[in-house]
Amino acid sequence: MTFMLAGPAVYVLWLSFTVSNFGQNPQFVGWQNYAAILTDRYFWTAAWNTFIVVNAVVYIELLLAVLVALVVASLKTGRMLMFAVVLVPYGISEVVGVLSWRFLADPSIGLITNTLALIGIDFNWTLNPEAALVLITTISIWHHLPFSFVIIYAAIISVPNELYEAARVDGATKWQEFWLITAPIIVPAALLAIIFRYVFAFRMFSEVWLVTQGGPIRLTEVLGTYLYRTGFRYSDFGGAAATGWLMVLGSLLLAAIYLRAIYRSAFRDA
């Protein structure tokens, strides 16, 4: 088990210090791959895009998950039906989902593009990198919302009803009930959802590859596609491996920050 997990990781670590491609045995080159990546401006574009998209995805998705979970939890009837409806995107294959969105947002005949054009917004993501990143962010949120939703929903319905009754007797408004009772109690669950989504979103690939392939002129590339392009288009396995390790370090750093926050919120005590 340990070998299964660690074996490939160690191999990739070794690969990241070598130069190799198809038909060439790996040659040890030390930090050269890392130096090349860190001076590559496309890497920094990809890193910056990843940073923007990941943060947008994680926080907008969390906000939506809380809103949807509150609505579903407050339903008197049809709760299970709504629950199932909200989960649907998670059951759709990533490729099918992304291609459907691509069709909906087709620059000339897409439903979304045409609707936006009616209210005067030109949403041509094939030419405009910002628009493309907005589309990619939207798809990623749409596809993973059920994940964050389930975590937040479970936390919300686990709050005992008596707490709300006590708060009502104590004089709380609905708004105060949410901010002073619900919100603090679901914080650990929200942090957990954030960690998972950061790690998932950090390695985002198919949304970008299937929509723009990182174009135009590599302006919408994220780290996942940068790695893929380095490895399988340019056959630079060493560079791809080094990118992979940089992504792992990035994920670990993020996870560490949030795990610490969870630990503090869950175990602080007098």
Partner: peptide, 22 residues
């Protein structure tokens, strides 16, 4: 009248203490 205007206080069976407050 909502509970808060009734000038009452209630002690619940399961205490209903707010877990995140001292």
């Amino acid at each position: 009248m909502p509970p808060k205007q009734r000038n009452i206080a209630m002690v619940f069976q399961n205490y209903a203490l707010y877990p995140h407050m001292t």
